[in-house]
Design a protein around this nucleic acid. Structure first.
Length: 751
DNA sequence: ACTGTAACTTAGAACGGTCTCA
DNA sequence: TGAGACCGTTCTAAGTTACAGT
């Protein structure tokens, strides 16, 4: 948590100052880089950065060069290690991929944010009305304002009662003696009213029961056969287990992919006995269909279980949850996110992953590192087994870790998002974004200036930052080639990922982006940019191959170091958070109209949310049943329409009737009919709204932005302002995660 | 200065329970 | 009351960032 605690420093001057906690980084600043790829760069060098008055006017583009050299005169690329392979591979793989996605209808996020000319640079109108918030960093400090908090603040230390729900009986009665007061859920702990740790310590006390391991392999019944080359063959348990992993995936298109099959087969053979190994030499000759059928039958059987059986399983799960799903951290019982260890299986990477199909091995106690307090009751390994290590590191938040065998990375068991430790961090993230709001104008002016810099690296940095800001791109770390799918973010964009159009569809200086980002989700976007940016891009691309880095003098660490100097705590991803949240706020303001009813307001909310999802390129595959469910809805709407016209007709005749008869009864009938019409109108409206919402949402996923990018206080404030129950916006889990925001945001909260 | 890695956040898909409507 | 739509939950991969070690 170091570096997070400067919040009370003033925010007005959030940049340029280098504060203590970051001084040590200065030495890393601005050095020229190693030479990594000589040949290519040498060639490029001569022609590249010409002489210039760095004016950037298109007419004199060629004079623009020369000045752009590195100070040392080198023009070597900063980074471009891996690439040879990429050439061939990308041709086929990326092409295919994209084609496919196009077919799927997966494509361009349209851009929501507007161009600089209009209101991209949100002017500093912020917090005019807010007095309380004047200094919004301090918001992150525990609110000392409230007197009662002061005493509470002390409590973290020890006295608050530990709150294990003493019993498993989930309904009502409580057996822990503290009668009625305890009745329901113990009143929720408001960690956000307490003081935070400030020294990198994450907890003082941590106790838990360790992980739950995957159930051991349960061998197939003997009537389920495996066939090799047409002949039945009994596999050793080890080989059989791995075979079942494959069999379970048979319906998935993964298993048709070459790399998947190759990787699988290689790893499978490692598990075979030598006899099996000699026999089984060709995956094509393997017949897993009986296994596959067996598992399908099993899952059918599971669905067909009786209520009692299902209940039993549920109870067992609940028991496991109560026993292993919680820990005690600093006197509070907190939910653990993932207390079950990932079971063995075949690795499914996303996109074109070179390792797909590899065997993800079973994790044993001997692989596990346990982290807990020294003075806690340590978790026990299973009988006769040992942990790899037990440590007591309170500078980290995880309870259990192990090293995974596919990438060699470390996996963790950590707490639920509703926990204090996650919530504080989340809150802090939004506070950092709000600090950015205060100085974003300055930063934008600065990078616009930097577009004219004499130094190439500065121009690149400035253009990259512009993209990150304007398009909410991810930072784009370098990745090790061949270890992962070929995806990029901003700093790792390659020349092949953008196209420049001096003119396109009546717009000037259009850049077309087309690349695979995180999770191999395609980013496609055509954006008009400022002339200077355009010219710079032309410059960056000169004499480069398609698979060369666009920003050859930039990487995420350089960029983030720069950002750190502009504002304490600023990194590339803060721009995503900031732009997402500010967009939500603006859109809500623009879209919500007071007269609308609740469903319509919620539609507006969803639209605002959608604007953010589009900005962040949060896509999803259109639901398989999309068309159908759309049709169903339409049928319903039609039916409702009919119903409405019927009702109207009835109303009319009732009115006529009443006019003639003038008696109480007929008047009453009119009233009833009126009500009916109204009700039906409302229902119809609701359905129509639903249809619109769904249609617009076809391939956009709202969840990710809602959960990770939108300051929940914006939503809470909006709910309060318009009298919308917060449950309409956040489900139970989300309310738990955002409890802090729900508790603290008033209707006038301003991001 | 640069690499490697630990720690933590963000991500979409799969799963599975629940609700709804014929 | 059963099928299917829907929606929340779970799963775990894939990012970002800080920082240690050389």
């Amino acid at each position: 948590m170091s570096g997070d605690h400067s919040h009370n420093e003033d925010q007005i001057d959030c940049g340029s100052r280098v504060n203590d906690s970051h001084k040590h980084k200065d030495k890393y600043k601005e050095k020229e880089h190693k030479h990594k790829d000589h040949k290519k760069d040498k060639e490029r060098e001569k022609s590249k950065y010409g002489n210039s008055d760095h004016k950037d006017s298109s007419d004199k583009k060629h004079r623009d060069k020369e000045k752009m050299k590195h100070k040392d005169g080198s023009t070597d690329k900063y980074k471009d290690k891996h690439k040879e392979k990429r050439k061939e591979e990308k041709m086929k793989s990326l092409d295919v991929k994209i084609k496919k996605e196009k077919e799927n209808g997966f494509a361009s996020p349209q851009h929501v944010k507007s161009e600089p000319e209009d209101d991209f640079y949100h002017s500093p109108k912020q917090s005019l009305k807010r007095v309380r918030n004047e200094d919004n960093d301090s918001e992150f400090q525990p609110k000392k304002i409230k007197t009662e908090n002061d005493k509470k603040a002390k409590k973290r230390k020890q006295d608050e009662d530990i709150k294990p729900k003493k019993t498993k009986n989930k309904k009502g009665e409580v057996t822990d003696g503290k009668k009625k007061a305890k009745k329901e859920p113990e009143e929720k702990w408001k960690w956000w009213e307490e003081e935070r740790y400030t020294d990198g310590v994450k907890w003082k006390f941590l106790e838990h029961k360790g992980p739950v391991f995957a159930p051991p392999y349960d061998p197939l019944p003997s009537n389920v056969k495996f066939y090799y080359d047409g002949k039945t063959m009994k596999l050793s348990p080890e080989a059989e287990e791995v075979a079942t992993f494959f069999a379970k995936m048979l319906d998935h298109e993964y298993t048709t992919k070459d790399i998947f099959r190759k990787n699988f087969f290689k790893d499978w053979r490692k598990e075979m006995t030598s006899e099996e190994k000699t026999k089984i030499t060709d995956l094509k000759k393997c017949n897993f269909s009986e296994m596959s059928e067996y598992f399908k039958a099993q899952s059918e059987a599971r669905k067909a279980m009786t209520k009692e059986e299902k209940l039993k399983i549920k109870e067992e799960n609940e028991r496991l949850l109560q026993e292993y799903g919680f820990c005690i951290m600093d006197n509070h019982r907190e939910r653990i996110a993932n207390f079950r260890i990932e079971p063995p299986g075949l690795f499914r990477g996303r996109g074109d992953h070179p390792k797909m199909g590899m065997l993800k091995r079973r994790i044993r106690p001997e692989d596990i590192i346990v982290n807990c307090s020294k003075d806690s009751k340590h978790p026990e390994p299973p009988p006769g087994r040992k942990w790899k290590e037990v440590r007591h590191d309170n500078k980290v938040t995880w309870l259990v870790s192990w090293t995974e065998n596919i990438q060699g990375s470390i996996k963790y068991i950590m707490l639920n998002p509703s926990s204090r430790i996650k919530g504080e961090k989340d809150w802090q993230k939004y506070e950092t974004a709000r600090r950015l709001k205060k100085c974003v104008d300055r930063i934008r002016n600065q990078y616009r200036e930097d577009w004219k810099s004499k130094e190439m690296r500065i121009r690149q940095r400035a253009v990259a930052l512009y993209f990150i800001d304007k398009l909410a791109l991810r930072a784009g770390n370098e990745k090790e080639e061949g270890e992962t799918a070929d995806t990029v973010g901003c700093c790792s964009l390659r020349v092949e990922h953008i196209k420049l159009y001096p003119e396109n569809d009546g717009q000037e200086y259009v850049v077309e982006f087309d690349f695979l980002g995180k999770d191999s989700i395609r980013y496609y976007n055509k954006v008009p940019v400022e002339k200077r940016v355009f010219k710079n891009l032309q410059l960056f691309m000169e004499n480069k191959e398609p698979d060369d880095d666009l920003f050859d003098r930039l990487n995420t660490s350089i960029l983030n170091k720069h950002l750190q100097e502009l504002m304490d705590g600023l990194t590339a991803k803060v721009f995503r958070t900031y732009n997402a949240s500010i967009t939500l706020q603006q859109q809500l303001k623009a879209l919500t109209s007071a007269e609308e009813n609740i469903p319509a307001k919620i539609l507006s909310y969803n639209r605002a949310n959608r604007a953010v999802a589009i900005l962040c390129n949060h896509q999803r595959a259109p639901p398989k049943t999309f068309e159908k469910s759309m049709q169903n809805l339409q049928t319903k709407i039609d039916a409702k329409r009919d119903q409405l016209s019927d009702a109207k007709r009835e109303l009319k005749s009732a009115k006529a009737d009443a006019k003639v008869r003038k008696d109480e009864k007929s008047k009453k009938t009119v009233e009833t009919k009126k009500k009916a019409v109204q009700r039906i109108e409302e229902q119809l409206m609701k359905l129509e709204v639903q249809a619109t919402d769904r249609e617009e949402n076809k391939q956009i996923a709202l969840g990710t932005s809602k959960l990770n990018y939108l300051d929940p206080r914006i939503s809470v404030a909006w709910c309060k302002k318009w009298g919308i129950p917060v449950e309409k916006i956040y489900n139970k889990t989300q309310r738990e995660k955002f409890a802090w925001a729900i508790d603290m945001a008033d209707d006038d909260f301003e991001f």
